[in-house]
């Protein structure tokens, strides 16, 4: 199988981006009215839908802190070959477990004892960096649900191919067996929340990947923060709009 050129002589990637450029990010929050929090996130062609329910009553076991449950699944139409959407195959379980652990530390669980928060992630279209998209979508859904969190978690991937480190991998770049890192950081402190490295890398390359992924995360943060801000301000303006209408009654 002939290897496609991942980076052209001009320095452009398969989708025309420069190595240190993330894809176009579109996020919509509050799209599912019945869920406490929801977010539809598009990172290029990767589309992820995250819904959050909670905090709500936890019927079994008593706990002094909130419990978080997470389920991750990929739709059967998400990738080019149709496959049965499985929720309990190892990959999905590991993703869900990783995301759950990430958010267990971000949410202020002692503020909602004896309650649970359920996270549901559905990948609608997979074009690389699904893990990052999932984490970002869940963050925004949490904000939409009004669940108190320490910080925003932002995530981005980075890879090393043809002697270049690139940011925000798409599917074509992910299926190569080169070193790839998915990194999630706390936006304001820039400390690492979660990291996953696929394929071996020397120490130097690894350091490079972390630095580049961090930069990508911060770019992602800008987009996400402004989306949250815009949505929230719209809501507030709407609510206050006729709030004092006839309140003298």
């Amino acid at each position: 199988m002939p290897r496609e050129e991942l980076i052209s002589p001009d320095g452009l990637r398969t989708d025309g981006r420069r190595p240190l450029e993330i894809r176009k990010v579109t996020c919509r929050m509050g799209i599912l009215p019945r869920a406490d929090g929801s977010c539809h996130l598009e990172m290029g062609n990767t589309i992820v839908l995250a819904t959050v329910y909670g905090p709500r009553e936890l019927s079994s076991r008593q706990s002094s802190c909130g419990i978080i449950r997470c389920e991750y699944s990929m739709a059967s139409f998400a990738s080019t070959d149709r496959r049965r959407g499985k929720r309990s195959d190892r990959n999905s379980v590991e993703m869900a477990s990783s995301i759950k652990k990430t958010f267990e530390n971000v949410l202020l669980t002692d503020l909602f004892p004896k309650s649970r928060v359920d996270i549901f992630i559905q990948v609608l279209q997979a074009d690389g960096s699904e893990r990052s998209a999932a984490i970002n979508a869940v963050t925004i859904a949490m904000v939409n649900a009004g669940i108190p969190m320490k910080d925003l978690i932002v995530s981005c991937s980075a890879g090393y191919m043809e002697n270049t480190t690139v940011m925000d991998l798409n599917h074509v770049e992910m299926i190569t067996r080169g070193p790839q890192l998915t990194l999630a950081i706390y936006a304001s402190t820039e400390r690492m929340a979660t990291a996953h490295l696929e394929s071996k890398a020397s120490f130097e390359i690894f350091e490079n990947l972390i630095a580049i992924a961090k930069k990508g995360c911060l770019q992602m943060f800008d987009v996400m923060h402004s989306s949250i801000e815009r949505y929230s301000l719209n809501l507030i303006a709407s609510r206050d709009h006729i709030a004092t209408f006839g309140s003298r009654a």
């Binding site: 990783s98 530390n105 929340a193 490295l197 071996k200």
Partner: peptide
């Protein structure tokens, strides 16, 4: 480095 994994937990 063959694998690096930090799944959640404290930052």
């Amino acid at each position: 480095i063959c694998a690096f994994r930090k799944a959640g937990g404290a930052s």
